[in-house]
Write a protein that binds this DNA or RNA. Structure first.
Lengths: 254, 254
DNA sequence: TAGTGGTCTAGACCACGAG
DNA sequence: TCGTGGTCTAGACCACTAT
């Protein structure tokens, strides 16, 4: 009835066995060849399934030692940090952008270190505000490395935000995020229309194109109204694999 | 001189071309067959390279439409949320654990909703503190679904934390994280030895095993001393691929 | 040294979806 | 409709590492 056994089927089957307790935490599971024979597919299919499960942190694999169920639940959690605009519009609100400040400055030690440029190098400093239905949502403070992105010097940034502009201008190869919590000072409180001392969720981001640091940005959000979410689900889908009867019997009888 | 062209080589080459500007943001890149011919490898190799780059958010792929360089820099950022203990010990500090409270309670609506159990169901409520060199580091408030993990009822949790215990006890298939910022109230301030009103970085986590919600936990950290970091780098490694001379010529002459 | 995963290949069929 | 990516297969060789 069903077609060939896919790697998704194999993943589901493995997860299901772990869930049922067939293989306990830390237990060694069968080798690729054995699983392939049992499930009725090529070794390459089992390999891909196990490789992806390893990438998801469900199992750990080592040559010669075999594959075992991961004991440590410290699994890589994917957190999507969305573009402000997308996020706001996704929630059905009207996105608003306002440029608060823009000037070319000499990098102080704080910025120079983060952009990996010499102190005193020219950088473009930008402050702007993103709002949802006219309610302040995110205060953005950004520094752009003008040596790496000279074309930014001529850009006014009065209509579109620096992020959206950079997206179109430069691809990137690396990025770094740091998430923290801070208390709002008078300046932040005024910009975000909150009280001084309110908790802020701060996302710092740096991006690179090859060896060049492109930009460093601090995104400040009122903690009361903003959270970062992620949900990671393993593929638990309708199984097509048979039980003990075994697919091989079906194949044999086909 | 070199062996067969690997998928890592292909990834590097593609990233390098994007970096050099050969393919601009949003540009369509050649098809798998063409790339395979050009680079001198099997289509499967190119496919794996592009598939992984797509998973990393570098390119977007659609059948029939082809593959193009991702314009949106809203790429999935991996954030590792480490076990407290690992994190503290990794920094060379002495890990300390203290149980502050433990009791079986009837779930109120807040907890019931998060654990997906009926209000009034029995849950195990735990509060504990993790410290680094005797300095409070993380305040943990956890609820465990006793219907899903009945063995937790007999566990004192006075020596090892509930997370470490759960790790050994149950595998998991899904988890969810929510990160936010809050101001410390009197209780939190006292536990964490900070001032009332100080910013807290709050990580909420829920985990599932199949359809069962296992646990819901709130991890509170003093914002002044705790941050979540992630660095995502694309594979930019020494290239083995030849230039215009072409590896195929080498193969042919070999 | 031997076993296990890691990968490449060459060929084939299929499913989605742009035009 | 038909091109592009998605996947499976069967076989082979290789690299790491436990013993």
């Amino acid at each position: 009835m069903s077609g060939p056994v896919s790697y998704v089927d194999v993943k589901s089957e493995i997860v299901e066995r772990i869930r049922r307790g067939d293989w306990a935490v830390d237990a060694l599971i069968p080798g690729e060849v054995e699983l392939a024979a049992e499930l009725g597919c090529a070794r390459g299919t089992v390999n891909r399934a196990l490789r992806e499960l390893a990438a998801e942190g469900v199992v750990e694999r080592r040559r010669k030692a075999g594959t075992r169920v991961t004991a440590d639940r410290n699994r890589p959690a994917r957190i999507d940090i969305p573009l402000v605009r997308s996020r706001i519009e996704a929630e059905g609100a009207r996105y608003g952008y306002r440029l608060l400040g823009r000037r070319v400055v000499a990098a102080d030690s704080f910025v120079a270190e983060r952009l990996a440029v010499a102190p005193g190098s020219e950088v473009l400093s930008i402050e702007c505000l993103h709002s949802a239905d006219d309610v302040p949502h995110q205060l953005e403070r950004r520094w752009i490395n003008l040596a790496a992105v000279p074309s930014a010097r001529a850009e006014p940034f009065d209509e579109i935000g620096p992020n959206e502009w950079l997206v179109r201008e430069k691809p990137l190869t690396d990025f770094e995020h740091v998430i923290g919590a801070e208390n709002a000072g008078p300046a932040e409180a005024a910009r975000l229309a909150i009280a001084v001392g309110d908790a802020l969720l701060v996302v710092e981001r740096r991006t690179w194109l090859g060896a060049d640091t492109i930009t460093y940005v601090r995104l400040l959000h009122a903690g009361a109204s903003f959270r970062l979410c992620s949900h990671t689900a393993l593929p638990v889908m309708p199984l097509r694999l048979p039980g003990k009867t075994g697919r091989r019997a079906q194949q044999a009888s086909a």
